[in-house]
Every structure is written in C-alpha cells, then in structure tokens.
C-alpha cells in the first residue's frame, strides 16, 4: 500500500501540510484557504490574535475537527486515508489538557501510555523532572492550573516515538523552569526529526527556529 510506504519509510522526512483548509463558523469565514507546510526538524509556529482561529486550525491539523473545504496531508497522504497510521505518530496537547480531575497524575499518565504505546516505567522520573512527583498521588482536580498543565505536558517525554507534535499553547500557566523543560523537549523532538506545530503567546527559546504563520493577515500560499 502506498500509504504504508509513505509514512513508514524513515528516509522520507515527515511533514504535515494544510492544503486550502477552509472553516466556516456559522456565517463567518474563520479560516480562509489556509496553506501551511510544517517540516521535520522545524518548529512551525501559528500566531494570531484571540479568536483568529489558531485552536481550530490546530484541531483540523491533528484531525480532531473537520475542515469544510481542503485537506490535511501527513507525508503527502490525506489524513482521512490513514487515520490510524497518523494517530500512532501524533501527540496532541489541546486547549483542554485531557487530564481527568478525579484521577491522580500517575493514573492519568498510565492511561496515556496505554493509549499511545508510551513508556510507563518512565512516569516517575518524568514527574520528578517536572517537579510534580510529590503531588503525583493527589487527584488532578486539586492541583493548580500550572500543575495540571505539567501533567498533560509529561506526555511529551513519555511518548518520544511520536513524530508529529501539535501543541496548543504549551507554555500557558507555566513558570520559567516549566517553560525551559518544554522547550528542551521540543528541541530534542526536532533533533530526532520530528514535526512540531504550536501556538504560543510567550516567546519561544532561541534554539527553536522555524516559520511563523500569522492568521491575522490571511495566508494564501
């Protein structure tokens, strides 16, 4: 099958592409024929004011939402034709972090590892690196916003085999130490040849370079 060759052949660099992605929100045109090309080893940043459609674009890019027109391609093949293959490679941290309030950090991450073939034995060391090991046994609902965010971000280190990271505001609610940790993870991911697409309002570390797409002025190729 063509799809298998395209995605499993390590010689072909991975890339995530938006081809004329158009999304309507009711009567307003939220995303107008967006073209985007996120290459392996680069950090592609999406900028824009609140309400400019950053989150929607990220959700379309990772396949959580559908575009009204246009397509998203992973390694040149449409997402709709290779759902499972793409999902194996995908790590998405969304606007909603995917942390259940009634489960502890460890329980949340154990399930994330089961769902994404992650390394369960690393959970303690990752939580330690994120400085939340002492509170790992408290239901996540009792943690602060920054701490909950850290629980979600721990997936970056637990699922290192994923090739496509789509991160919605990964730096929000984090202190300097947390931001450095995230930047370090993204840098390692880039060096492994991974694709990163993210939105942020904070400045990224200088080591992370890549194209910036702004949604404020329409992008037409």
């Amino acid at each position: 099958m063509i799809t298998d060759q395209a995605t499993n052949n390590e010689a072909v660099p991975h890339c995530l592409e938006a081809v004329d992605v158009t999304v309507w929100r009711g009567e307003t045109l939220l995303l107008d024929r967006i073209k985007l090309h996120a290459k392996a080893g680069e950090v592609t940043q999406i900028a824009g004011a609140n309400g400019s459609g950053k989150t929607t674009l990220l959700r379309v890019l990772c396949g959580a939402a559908l575009a009204d027109e246009g397509e998203v391609h992973w390694c040149g093949v449409s997402l709709s034709k290779q759902r499972d293959i793409f999902n194996e490679q995908l790590l998405h941290i969304g606007h909603r972090p995917g942390v259940h309030a009634q489960l502890t950090a460890v329980e949340n991450l154990q399930l994330a590892c089961k769902m994404g073939n992650g390394v369960e034995s690393d959970i303690d060391s990752v939580l330690n690196a994120l400085a939340i090991l002492p509170i790992a046994d408290i239901p996540a609902g009792h943690l602060s916003a920054g701490q909950q965010r850290r629980v979600a971000l721990a997936r970056l280190a637990l699922l290192p085999h994923t090739r496509c990271w789509v991160l919605d505001e990964p730096l929000t609610a984090l202190d300097q130490q947390g931001r450095d940790w995230v930047a370090g993870q993204i840098q390692m991911h880039s060096e492994r040849g991974g694709v990163t697409v993210l939105t942020t309002h904070q400045p990224l570390s200088k080591n992370l370079s890549g194209p910036i797409y702004s949604l404020d002025a329409p992008i037409h190729g």
């Binding site: 990772c62 396949g63 959580a64 499972d84 293959i85 999902n87 194996e88 995908l90 998405h92 969304g94 606007h95 909603r96 972090p97 995917g98 942390v99 259940h100 309030a101 009634q102 994330a112 769902m115 994404g116 073939n117």
Partner: peptide, 17 residues
C-alpha cells in the same frame, strides 16, 4: 460529559487504539 469537557475524549479519538 466529563471526558468530553476535560479533553480526554479528544485524546481517545486521536489515539491509534
């Protein structure tokens, strides 16, 4: 309800399982 609103469901949908 909970899983939809805390984003877990999105993770389930986007997983290869």
């Amino acid at each position: 309800y909970d899983d939809l609103h805390n984003g877990s469901l999105e993770q389930f949908v986007l997983s290869a399982q």
